[in-house]
Every structure is written in C-alpha cells, then in structure tokens.
Amino acid sequence: MTFRTSQLTESVQASPPNPSTAPTTRSQAWVKPVLIIGVVLYLALVLFIPAANVFVQAFDGGIDGFLTTLTRRPFLNAIKLTLLMAAITVPLNTVFGLCAAWAIARNRFPGRTLLLSIIDLPFSVSPVVAGLMIVLLYGRNGWFGPLLEANNIRVIFAIPGMVLATAFVTLPFVAREVIPVLEEMGRDQEEAAKTLGANEWQTFWRVTLPSIRWGLLYGIILTNARAMGEFGAIAVVSGNIAGRTQTLPLYVEDAYKQYQTQSAYSAAVLLAGLAVVTLILKEILERKTRIKDS
C-alpha cells in the first residue's frame, strides 16, 4: 500500500495534471498536431486527391468538353436509364423497408436476429455474385428461363434484370435506418392513437410516419445513391449494350476502356456530384436528428 502511494505521488510530481486540460501535459503537446496532420494526409492520399481529380479532369479542357459529351445520344440514354433504375427501385425498397422495419421493431419472435442478418445479407454479398444469382434464376439456362422465353419476356440483358439487380443490392438501407428509430420511439404513442379510435392507416400516417420521417428520408437517400451508382451487379445482368442497357456507371467504364477519357470524366463528374449532394443531405439530416435528441 505504502509503495503504491509513494509511486502515485511520485508520478503526480513528475507530471502535475493541469486542471483545464487534464491529460494534455506539456510532454504530450506534440501528439495532437501530429495526429491531426497524419489523419489529414492519409485522407488526402486516399480520399480528397482522388475526389478532386474527378472535378479537375472533367473540366480540364474547359466546360466545352463536358457539354459536347452531354449531347451524345448514348450518354443521354445512360442518364435516362440511371434515373429509371432509381425511380423503380427506391419506391419498391422504401415500401419493403417500412414493412420489414415495422415487423422487426414492433414484434418479438424467435429468429428475429436471424431475420435482421438476412436483411443485411446484400451488404456483404459481392455485387457480382448478386448479379450471377439473377442470371442463374432468369437467364436462358435458369429456373425461369424456359418459362420467360415461351412468353417472350427478356429479363437478362434487359431492363427487368437490371431493376432486380439494383433492388437486390439496395434492399437493406431503408429497413436498417428505420428500425432503430422505430425502436427508440416505442409504441406508446401508437397505442394512444389506437385507443382514441384511429385505425391502422391513420395511426401510421399521423403518428408513426411523422416520428420516423428523418430516418426514413436518410434510408431513401442512401438507397437512391446506391441505386444510381451500382456497377457490379448491373454489369453482370445488363450485357452492357451501349444506348440500351448502359447506365452511367457502366458508361464510365466503357468510355474509359475505349480511351475516351473526356466522356468518362463527364459521366463521372455527374455521379460525383450526386455523391456530394448525398453527403450534404446526409449531414443535414444527421444534424436535424441530433438537435431533436438533445
């Protein structure tokens, strides 16, 4: 005991704690700037410089190069198709995400954690494997292949397959963002509404939805960003036919492979702009929910 106390006093004498910034003694003063500079350098090498490069290269030859690409037909088709992907898969996954979030957050049942992990599966499965699964199901040699062929419906190398692939990879986002919000909200308000005579729809629209709106919006934004930016899964099922099944990310790769650097960067800068908008909206939503918390 005595030994410990003496050791303690000794160390206290060696480095007297400063009351305002207690652990930051003089000998440690170099740690903070070194860590900050290290972090900024690391992020610059991996993130900031590559990100800045997209914008610089896109407008390297002035805005004309960008505008010329913008008028090309395959490019316009790619934009149209990218918007179509988001327009179909975002509502689908929003409805599913809301239903799944309600089922998981409002019920206790055996296998609940397993169901959560299953919903998360598309995040850990390679997009290429996701595309492969859809080819094996709907392709010519797939389970539904003969049936689809008999009815003259094309899924693979066509838009339906691309929608399925996009919906697969974006499936978890809404459910994942809404579940914690629903759990935190609890069911008191909903039960109060029901006791006061509201039916299920009224309870959902007037009580549940307003409480989860920011979480839901967050999930929708992430779904949209991924749906517009998905590459691997769509590359497998689409066949990458220019002007017909080529979305913007596929256009980027195709143009790059054909050494049309300007075209590739013109498409890339649009997608990077989408990413920046996504991040800004995300930040705004996070701040909104944080203000509500405090």
């Binding site: 590559p50 992430l222 990310p249 990413a275």
Partner: peptide
Amino acid sequence: KRIIDAAVDLPFALPTAVAGLTIASV
C-alpha cells in the same frame, strides 16, 4: 473538422466505377 467528418462517408456515396476511374488515373 465538420467537412472532414462528413467526407469520411464519401466511399459510401461515390459510385465505385468513379472511384476506380479516378484512383487509376491519380
């Protein structure tokens, strides 16, 4: 700090084809 904090999520938001393109050239 806030901008750097928000930018950490960039790899989630930036389509992978764009990431590949710019990393390849940088």
